[in-house]
Design a binder for these strands. Structure first.
Length: 570
RNA sequence: CGGGGCGUAGCGCAGCCUGGUUAGCGCGCCUGCCUUGGGAGCAGGAGGCCGUAGGUUCGAAUCCUACCGCCCCGACCA
């Protein structure tokens, strides 16, 4: 590829709209351009990087026995009604009507379409197992798209679906995908972790997320320092701690005028936040629920949501709290509370704690569960902290930020039953197929790779994802010898199958160096003055700046060696 | 959707508070000269419905109203 003929609109300055480094660099390097919020065009180099990811994904999916197909993006609403998701999915599903007034939607995911295909085409246990995947543009009308390719509304995703005769076989399929994902992200040169995950709206009962470790990640991971436990913080289970066996003291009502916040009450009563319990009110699909957690803890909304089987859980505001309980926020408590009461397991083990009195300007002291109130349930509801022990081995935990690039689910028979995707088993019985689904954010991987690989001068692509493997700078456009050498090197490398960008623009050297760094192409060959003076060209590695001087004849062999070495490990 | 911010040339910004005649600066772009190993220099030039609509006013980029778009923080997710 010749730079002079390419569309690579690099920017000297960072567009004001970009906050995170991958977004900034993708714009500056001319990889993407925004059309509207969360919707981007991929320019030639951006597309080249996407294609690299796709290719790795294809190879590994095929190796794992999956087959590629391509499903429609526009899907009929009726199909979605069969699983109830047309109603449940919410506004993220972009719905519209066609000219015949038929209700349709843009596919945010393809469980319905693939299950429809499976029920029509798969009849017998002899047809199973099957694993089908596609790489396709998805549309999700995200509440808040952000960070460029990190969270677009339109994005490129690989989604795979497995169909098996029973749960055991589905487990085998799941395991195979788990391993394929490990290979995919390793081959992409990413530093990542697989973690236990919540199943979210896709549904199902078992799931792992693949997280690229990066400070800009939107998820928090809990990672054990000793065993191999790793989990999304939303899901991280907390081991039940020992109950306090102190004798019960007598309940006391204390006047706490104007003391609403935990800190204020603790100050006033001279106690620690860990001796106080707070009462938080949530709306679960609109129904108020009170949750008790220790004063210094946070409620984990996903745990609450799963316990209640709710679609949506949000914190109630002051007004909603008052409407539901008749008590102003700050003085809520479990004693004689009017709404459903859930208690975090840690609180269940506490004795003689302080909590709101359900009366303005009063708190209660020496409150005890069982004696003073009865909850509807006790469960693990709080968010884990870095000070908690590992729920598996008891060792210390670390917290890290991560970008979710892959998510695999064991779906079970939820979809196949709802859509009547049955097969006839060897025993003659009709049974629902057991499903799994497996997603990879292809375009997001490009962003994640940049988050993990960059410096002040620009991107630094790992060789397997690099849109071009080599950039060749001709620093003497008007010098016959230099240009002839650059051109012949370009041809030679092209002929050897190297992906190479020849910077043949009539620009000053400084601009060419800056652009080469910005684009993050792993290898840079410079043909300039040194050729005339010493008969050498320069080969430089973007990542560490390692530079070697070679005669033009030595270049291609060395380049091929470096590419081969870096395709495997870096 | 709640909270915050921003829309002026391709990009980054000033001007707006305190309304006034040709709307400015840097980068980029075009022409010429010059220069050629880390985003050079000089000279000349092109490029603007000041987000949109309405209002106030003799007069609006500037004041008011509504709408649209974009970004950031939260809930959602590959």
């Amino acid at each position: 590829m010749r730079y002079s003929q390419s569309l690579i609109p690099t920017l000297k300055e960072t567009p004001a709209e970009a906050e995170v480094v991958s977004h900034r660099l993708l714009l500056r390097a001319g990889f993407i351009r925004k059309l509207s919020a969360g919707v981007y065009s991929y320019l030639p180099l951006g597309l080249a990087a996407v294609r690299k990811v796709e290719q790795i994904v294809r190879e590994e999916m095929n190796r794992a026995g999956a087959q590629e197909l391509l499903m429609p993006m526009v899907q009929p609403a009726d199909l979605w009604r069969e699983t109830g998701r047309y109603e449940k999915y919410g506004p993220e599903l972009l719905r519209f009507r066609d000219r015949h007034d038929r209700e349709s939607c843009l596919g945010p995911t393809h469980e319905e379409v693939i299950t429809d295909l499976a029920r029509r085409e798969i009849r017998s246990y002899r047809d199973l197992p099957k694993n089908l995947y596609q790489i396709q543009t998805k549309f999700r009308d995200e509440i808040r798209p952000r960070f460029g390719l990190m969270r677009g509304r339109e994005f490129i995703m690989k989604d795979a679906y497995s169909f098996d005769v029973d749960d055991t076989q589905a487990g085998v399929a799941y395991q195979r995908m788990y391993e394929a994902y490990q290979r995919i992200f390793s081959r992409c040169g990413l530093e990542f972790r697989a973690v236990d995950a919540d199943t979210g709206t896709i549904g199902g009962n078992f799931s792992h997320e693949f997280m690229v470790l990066a400070d800009t990640g939107e998820d928090t991971l809990v990672i054990c320092s000793s065993c191999d436990y790793a989990s999304n913080i939303e899901k991280a289970a907390i081991a039940a701690s020992d109950a306090d066996e102190s004798p019960l003291l007598e309940l006391e009502k204390v006047e706490t005028p104007g003391k609403r916040k935990v800190a204020a009450v603790c100050d006033f009563m001279e106690i620690k936040p860990s001796e106080l319990v707070k009462t938080l009110v949530f709306l679960a699909d609109g129904n108020p629920v009170a949750v008790l957690v220790r004063g210094d803890r946070e409620v984990q909304a996903v745990k609450l949501k799963n316990l209640l089987g709710a679609v949506e859980v949000e914190m109630a505001d002051d007004k909603q709290v008052y409407e539901a309980t008749g008590v102003p926020t700050g003085y809520l408590g479990p004693v004689n509370i009017k709404i459903k009461l859930l208690v975090d397991q840690e609180v269940a083990g506490m004795k003689n704690f302080v909590i709101g009195a359900n009366e303005k300007n009063y708190h209660l002291k020496n409150v005890n569960m069982g004696r003073d109130f009865e909850p509807s349930a006790v469960a693990d509801l709080r968010q884990i902290t870095r000070d908690d022990p590992c729920p598996i081995c008891g060792a210390g935990l670390g917290l890290k930020e991560g970008i979710e690039v892959g998510h695999i689910f064991k779906l079970g028979t939820g979809y196949s039953q709802a859509m009547e995707a049955f097969f006839q088993d060897s025993d003659g019985q009709e049974k629902p197929m057991v499903m799994g689904c497996y997603g990879i954010g292809v375009s997001r991987i490009v962003a994640a790779a940049i988050e993990q690989n960059h410096d002040d001068n620009g991107m630094i692509f790992p060789m397997p994802l690099a849109p071009m493997q080599v950039i060749l700078l001709n620093l003497g456009i008007s010098d016959e010898h230099i240009t002839a050498t650059a051109e012949s090197l370009y041809q030679e490398l092209l002929n050897k199958g190297v992906e190479i960008l020849l910077d043949d623009r009539d620009e000053r050297p400084g601009s060419k160096f800056k652009d080469a760094d910005l684009l993050g192409i792993p290898l840079r060959i410079t043909v300039g003055k040194r050729l005339t003076k010493d008969g050498v060209v320069e080969l430089r590695q973007r990542r560490d700046g390692t530079t070697e001087e070679l005669t033009p004849e030595q270049v291609s062999a060395r380049v091929l060696d470096l590419i081969a070495a870096k395709m495997i490990s870096e």
